[in-house]
Design a protein around this nucleic acid. Structure first.
Length: 338
DNA sequence: GTGCATGATTCTTT
DNA sequence: AAAGAATCATGCAC
């Protein structure tokens, strides 16, 4: 055991000299058996290994074969393997720590949530349905947009999977190729299984970083699609007639103070099948537009006043006129006069 | 295509 | 935080 360092040391000392004639002599197995001769022997083998890449392919092939058959080869090979093992282990210890990538996990989670990387159909339509629900809308005519969204999502999904498969295939092919190469080389130079393992790890890391780029751009594409789908301003739909009617009825019957409470907004939202914030938007727009041009809305105001009055009389023959805007009892309180 | 209507957003004011 | 005001972007009738 303690002669291993000596072997390596001698390789440095003698290896650089280069004695083709002597080397041939050694490889023939006719060299001396004394200690000094053995050192020379090993040194020449190492020298030949180190210079093998300088030779032509045929020469190198022949040299390789000769070296493989050399009587000292197994011993030298074992020693080199041990040394290699030690250095590889020390390298491993130094650079092995790899925290689970938070970014990658986020991307994976998102792709799963959006139904891009999950099971075939279910996730995608679920996400689309959620997006559709979030979009607010009347709910009747968004099925066309919905299917459009779904089609585009599945397009993204398909591209993603094709690319992913391509990467995986390339990764496997490359890994196999490298492993075959290393296995082949391990016959002439010391390559420990751990080193192969490490190499495979490096390859996988490289490919997974490429995969991450794919995941990132897929996420971006989904986000853009989603934001387009969800951007209500782009896909603005007028409220249906009934909803507008309900909102106008409330507005004109509360003309002196058209500021519905939170509860009233919720009630209106429910009646109109829209969201509370849409109700708030509507009243905000209505107030400002009414105030800006009361004349323009006069006809509408009268119409709804009549309607409200009619409703009131039909409900109660007593003819309550509590909410009649056409007969204000205290005009000074009207919001648009303030 | 044009112009007005309308729902949503953004910024400012209260 | 809610309302007002200005503005944007689309819908729709013509």
């Amino acid at each position: 055991m303690d002669d291993q360092p000596r072997l390596m040391h001698s390789s440095h000392g003698v290896g650089m000299a280069g004695h083709p004639g002597l080397a041939q002599h050694m490889l023939d197995g006719t060299g001396g058996a004394d200690g000094e001769g053995r050192k020379q022997d090993i040194g020449d083998i190492l020298q030949q290994i180190m210079t093998i890449t300088d030779e032509s392919l045929d020469e190198a092939q022949a040299r390789k074969h000769a070296l493989n058959c050399h009587r000292m080869k197994p011993a030298l090979f074992n020693v080199l393997c041990e040394i290699k093992e030690k250095t590889v282990l020390s390298i491993r210890g130094a650079q092995e720590e790899e925290p689970p990538d938070a970014q990658l996990m986020r991307l994976d989670n998102m792709l799963l949530a959006e139904g891009v990387s999950g099971p075939e159909k279910g996730g995608g339509s679920a996400a689309a349905a959620a997006a559709a629900a979030a979009a607010g809308g009347g709910g009747s005519d968004n099925s066309a947009e919905h299917s459009d969204y779904r089609a585009k999502l599945s397009q993204i999904r398909q591209i993603y999977h094709t690319e992913l498969e391509k990467y995986e295939q390339a990764c496997n092919e490359f890994t196999t190729h490298v492993m075959n190469l290393l296995r082949e080389q391990s016959r002439t130079r010391p390559i420990s299984p751990k080193e192969i393992e490490r190499m495979v790890g490096i390859i996988h890391r490289k490919f997974s970083s490429i995969q991450m780029q794919l995941k990132q751009s897929t996420c971006e594409a989904v986000m853009i699609l989603r934001s387009r789908f969800l951007d209500a301003r782009r896909k603005r739909r007028n409220f249906n007639k009934q909803a507008t009617e309900i909102l106008n009825e409330y507005f004109y019957s509360h003309l002196s103070n058209p500021y519905p409470s939170e509860e009233a907004k919720e009630e209106l939202a429910k009646k109109c099948s829209i969201t509370v914030s849409q109700v708030s938007n509507w009243f905000g727009n209505k107030r400002i537009r009414y105030k800006k041009n009361i004349g323009k809305f006069q006809e509408e105001a009268n119409m709804y006043a009549a309607k409200t009055a009619a409703n009131a009389t039909s409900v109660s023959t007593h003819g309550s006129q509590a909410n009649s805007p056409s007969t204000p009892n205290s005009a000074g309180e009207y919001f648009f006069l303030g």
